[in-house]
Structure formats: structure tokens, C-alpha cells
């Protein structure tokens, strides 16, 4: 299938799309299992935001590729084709891990969207301008919860600190530019390296208020942006793609 745009731009769009889809999918697993009804509803709203954003990006990617639709990318690629950040494919485990995963990512996501809005790519700017309103809410939601869990009970403090320690090593990848990121920095002025400092500052402020410690001396994991994933993504896709694999080429 021919792609009618720079392949690196196409890849960058898929990075954004896959991030949104994989995180949305994970959060949607909470539906029906939340700690309290109100939070069940809140998590489903956030999952819907992410999957909605994924659809906008996939549709944009599909508009550049012959014969592709928004469903071609999520349902027909294997693990190696996915470009999402490793952090986002991590399992939910418990509410603390789930919120920590969102917290690290939401703070990054917001700054990334800001950079896209200030960039020179019209179609991406349009999507980002819509998405950032939702993400502003995500940031507030996840950082409020970091404070409640971090500065809640002894048990909650320990649990969420464990999650912070476990997930921090997946955050370095946010700022390691892929070929697509480098292209976007050069051509459209979207520079992920430049938001790292602000991200660190924001993270630290919230962690401190949450009485949580910032992990030290971390060896950062990477691979998501080049499709070298953890073992967890394959299982996620097995579920996500099950119908399309069992009954290929049909309308649903």
C-alpha cells in the first residue's frame, strides 16, 4: 500500500495513535471493576477520550495511505508494527499502578500536545487543539489521585510509591527521539527533547506534594518507538484483534 506523505510523518502519527489506543484499551479494562462507582465512570470517560483521540490520528494516517481505514492499524498489525511507548502497555495491576502510569504519561502528553499546537503541521494542530482540553482534565485527575494515594494511608503510600519506582524506568523513552521524532523536530518544530525539563519539574512538584520520593539512578528502558515491545503488548493485541483474526475480512 502506497503512503502519500513522508513515511516519517506517517510514523509519527502512528506513534501518537498507538499511544492513545493502547492506554485507552488498558484503562477500559477497568470498566465494571473500579474501586467505587463514581471512579468506574471517571475511568471510562478517560478511556473514551484516549480511544477517541486514537481514532482521529488513525483516520489521519489512513488518509495518507491507499486502502487503509482507521481499523487497519489497530487490528491488522502485529506487535512489531506498534509504535506506542512501553509504559502504556503495562498492565493495570491495581488502582495505584494504573494512576501512576497515567500520571507520568498525562504530564508528558500535555506538553507534547502544547508543542504540536505551536508547530507548523495543520492537521495535527487541529487534533491536538481538541485533545488538549481532555488531557488537561486527565492531568488534574491523575495528579489529584497521586496526592490522595501518596498522602492517604500508610498502605496507599507504600503501594503507590512501589508503582512509581516500578514505572519510572519507562519514562526515559518519552524523550529519546525516534527517526520520526527527529524528522518532526526538523520539519515542523515539534521537539520532544525540549519538554523534558518542564516534565521533570511538574512531576517532581506533584510527587513532593504527594509525599512520594522521586526514583534515583534509573536505567531507562526503550524500544516502543521502534516496535521492540515488552511481552505484555502481544497479549493485549491477542484480545484486541481476536474477532478480526478469527473472522477476517468481514464488516462488523
Amino acid at each position: 500500500m502506497a503512503i502519500h506523505c513522508n513515511p516519517l510523518l506517517h510514523q509519527f502519527i502512528l506513534q501518537l495513535a498507538d499511544n492513545a489506543l493502547v492506554l485507552g484499551h488498558r484503562i477500559s479494562e477497568w470498566c465494571g471493576h473500579g474501586p467505587v462507582l463514581e471512579q468506574d465512570i471517571a475511568l471510562a470517560n478517560i478511556a473514551l477520550d484516549h480511544i477517541g483521540q486514537a481514532r482521529m490520528y488513525y483516520q489521519l494516517a489512513a488518509s495518507f495511505e491507499d486502502g487503509a481505514t482507521e481499523d487497519s492499524y489497530p487490528y491488522q498489525r502485529d506487535v512489531r508494527g506498534f509504535r506506542n511507548l512501553l509504559l502504556l502497555e503495562m498492565e493495570n495491576k491495581d488502582f495505584g499502578y494504573t494512576l501512576t502510569r497515567s500520571f507520568f504519561y498525562d504530564q508528558f502528553h500535555y506538553l507534547l500536545l502544547e508543542a504540536i499546537i505551536q508547530s507548523d503541521h495543520k492537521a495535527l494542530k487541529e487534533i491536538a487543539s481538541q485533545a488538549i482540553k481532555e488531557v488537561r482534565y486527565h492531568c488534574r485527575y491523575s495528579s489529584d489521585w497521586m496526592k490522595r494515594l501518596g498522602d492517604g494511608t500508610e498502605e496507599s503510600h507504600q503501594r503507590v510509591q512501589k508503582a512509581v519506582d516500578a514505572f519510572y524506568m519507562y519514562t526515559g523513552e518519552f524523550f529519546m527521539p525516534s527517526a520520526a521524532d527527529e524528522y518532526m523536530a526538523a520539519e515542523f518544530n515539534i521537539n520532544i527533547e525540549s519538554i523534558k525539563e518542564k516534565w521533570l519539574e511538574n512531576i517532581q512538584a506533584v510527587l513532593q506534594e504527594s509525599t512520594l520520593a522521586m526514583p534515583q539512578d534509573t536505567w531507562f528502558q526503550k524500544g516502543g518507538k521502534t516496535g521492540v515491545h515488552t511481552e505484555k503488548l502481544g497479549f493485549l493485541l491477542a484480545e484486541l484483534q481476536y474477532i478480526q483474526r478469527a473472522y477476517p475480512n468481514m464488516n462488523w
Binding site: H33, G34, P35, V36, Q39, D94, F95, G96, R148, L149, G152, T153, E155, S156, R159
Partner: peptide
């Protein structure tokens, strides 16, 4: 499983 979350809040 949500008990500790409710208590924390």
C-alpha cells in the same frame, strides 16, 4: 480490591 483506595481518599 478498592478498599484501600477508598480509605486513602
Amino acid at each position: 480490591k478498592g478498599a484501600w483506595v477508598r480509605e486513602a481518599a
